[in-house]
Simulated scan of single mutants.
Amino acid sequence: MEAALADTTNLRVWDLPVRAMHWLLVIGIGVCWWTGINNELEYHLWSGYAVLWIVLMRLYWGLVGSPTARFVNFVRGPKAILDYVSTLHRRDTPHSHGHNALGAISIVVMLGLVLAVVILGLFAVDVDGLYSGPLSSYVTFKRGRHLAHLHYHWFNILLWVIALHLAAVIFYFIYKRRNLIGPMIHGRRPLDAGNVGDAAETEMEDASLWRFVIGAVVATAIVYAVSIAFYF
């Protein structure tokens, strides 16, 4: 009886690919930051490739992955966002099965910023030219240096957005008493007390593993092509 209750009051909300990509992106951005500030540009370049692969996979998984991973299921319009914002002061708001309307903005903005920062880095020109981006040969030295400065500037903006994201996680944990980190580790969240009977209706279904494999192969091919500047 207790086991059955545990099964119905804890819903799977994040699949393994989403959780793995989330934490790998955290690690990847951290490595990019550390290698950048310590002028370890060779490793900075490789970590940039890794981040590019992860972002491409997350974008792909947002189209064909499990229901809670798909953008179409959590990206909402202005009205839904404003309606959700109007409930932020309440502690008793029901769980969102996946990203809520406001959190969706954070996800989309961060993915967009990370992709923009990586693309700028691909065209950036290093001062001594030793570790310029693989696509820097497509731009002039002056333009490449400008893109390098933009790469640095937009990465700092990304750090502020990440800080805001962490602040939101802390706000939910302290004020709204919602642990957002746990589900991103083990994949499950508690079902609201009044909705135990709806568990079967909201239980997440995993997308086919083959979809992930196909996406991984395509993303790897794209990153490889970028790394050799499309010179086949």
Rank of each mutant, 00 (worst) to 15 (best):
M1V: 07
M1Y: 06
A3N: 13
A6I: 08
D7G: 04
R19V: 03
R19E: 05
A20K: 10
A20G: 06
H22R: 13
L25A: 14
C32R: 15
T35A: 09
N39F: 02
Y43P: 00
Y43S: 01
H44F: 11
Y49E: 13
W53M: 14
V55F: 01
R58N: 11
G62I: 02
G62N: 10
G62Y: 00
G65C: 04
S66V: 07
P67D: 07
R70I: 03
V72C: 06
V72S: 15
N73I: 00
F74L: 01
R76S: 12
R76F: 04
A80F: 10
D83Y: 12
Y84A: 01
S86Q: 13
T93N: 09
S96E: 14
H97E: 10
H97S: 03
H99E: 06
N100R: 10
G103S: 12
I105W: 04
I105H: 08
S106H: 06
V118L: 03
L120W: 01
G121R: 03
G121S: 04
L122V: 08
F123N: 13
D126T: 06
L130W: 02
Y131N: 15
L135N: 13
G144P: 13
G144V: 06
A148H: 05
L150T: 04
H151C: 05
H153D: 06
F155G: 05
F155C: 00
L158C: 01
V161E: 08
L164K: 11
H165A: 01
L166I: 14
A167T: 09
I170S: 08
Y172M: 15
R177A: 11
R177I: 05
R178H: 06
G182E: 02
R188K: 14
R189K: 15
A200H: 13
W210Q: 08
F212A: 08
I214Q: 07
G215Y: 00
V217P: 01
S227W: 07
I228R: 12
F230W: 12
